[in-house]
Design a protein around this nucleic acid. Sequence first.
RNA 1: GCCGAGAUGACAGAGCGGCAAAUGUGGCAGACUGCAGAUCUGCAUUUUGGGGGUUCAACUCCCUCUCUCGGCACCA
Length: 467
Amino acid sequence: MLKLYDSLSKKNKPFVSLHGNRVYMFVCGITPYDSPHIGHARAYVFYDVLAKYLKYKGYNVFYLQNVTDVDDKIIARALESGVKAGEVSSKYFAEYREVMGKLKVDSVTLYAKSTDYISEIIDLIKKLIKKGYAYPSDGSVYFRVNKFEKFGELSGQIMEKLEEGASIEPDDAKEDQKDFVLWKGYKENEPYWDSPWGRGRPGWHIEDTAIAMCYFREHYDIHGGGVDLIFPHHEAEIAQAEAITDVHPFVNYWMHIGMLNIRGEKMSKSLKNFITVKDLLNKYPPEVVRFFMINNEHLKPLEFSFEAMDTAKVSHEKLVRLRNSLSTVDFDSEFDAELQREMDHAEERFFEAMDNDLSVREGFAAIFTVLPKINKALSDMHGGREQYNNFHDFLNRVNLITDIFPEEDRGYSEAGRIGTLIDSLNQYREELREKKRYEESDRIRSILEKSNISIEDTKKKTKWNKR
RNA sequence: GCCGAGAUGACAGAGCGGCAAAUGUGGCAGACUGCAGAUCUGCAUUUUGGGGGUUCAACUCCCUCUCUCGGCACCA
């Protein structure tokens, strides 16, 4: 049974959905004011795998991701470059969609832009004011943090102690400096919407709550984001929602992914230590990037380096090679019971690991354990074709969840036309090798290498693969 | 200052009362090979950040100290 770590109860909890086989999952999306960096990639690739695993298990997943398309940073960026805020956000949102597409992050059901939900946001704020949790002041509206007793439950923060080190700029419009803004009063050169409190725009925290409640109502299954969002963002979301509905908890599973670090520090725009997803994809195939992003414990920080990427690339290649060899088994020997036992064990371990709060790394470890045994059996031509087919099928199921394998190109396979051509070339090369005309045979090999066909001479025959 | 996470072989990184080290990378040696690559087999490093406690038994639980990272009202 699937267990997920819930940061609110700080426990691994068996996953039980609220509405039968439907799962409602919300993940905090980006604020599109610049190119997405690989810290974003880690988060969204992970949640993509979570959604795909839930789907694999038979759930119908409604994966909702918000887009904060109006925000201080977008406005600042727009003023800087002399364009409209909307142009900045749509440009970078398009770029985000593009790179996520390349990374095969395709499980999101709906991307919801904040500016499409202004009336829902205003409604929510009205309700909060009516219940005494919010107050208008000087054109803005603030949330009265002290009135919500559970504030701090998720992060463990003790409100009284927090004030000492608080770095917030004092704001006279607030009753209490801990209060956060729900509606920001209009300032010159800023986008605005009309509201009962005058022109203005929504605060950051209220957008997510409004969007999530619009589709999922007062109680839903999963809410994900980075650990850096726990405080204050997710505390605020809980406060806003529960203040209105009195339903606790608002969300059954709060999931938080660890940061991606570079040289020991969190990768972020403000530290200027970021690498864009685009740049990384210029150096590594998307499958390798995905493998790197999920081959770790998602609760912990992940240290990024090009050395670590190269390591990931080498081990990823072993998996790809294994799958390729399995799809081109051309013998059928006696069923190997011992091998079958190892294969079954690997499969079992893989799904156990996935069920244990998506321990993807542990899942891959299970495959790596059986990998040398399969390779050995293949080179000794032991084992039945069916058992290899079954394991190939298992790897395909792994791929439904993780999407780490490149597409198997049928045009290049042995049955395909290009495959037949390569086979003929190899046959000729064999003849040359038998006659010890190695200079010529090596030349064929190097020509094929240039077309990304790698040649492997083994005991019994020559194998080739598309790279 | 407060809140949270963490410290394990050369590196990355699991295990969380019972043979320390899964798994990956790298190193060395060997097998295969005309060469190359891939693959396979074997070997090595260390005693789990420091100190104290509980226990027949501690990497694992408790206390304490040191250090690292994240959050503290911008952020995945």
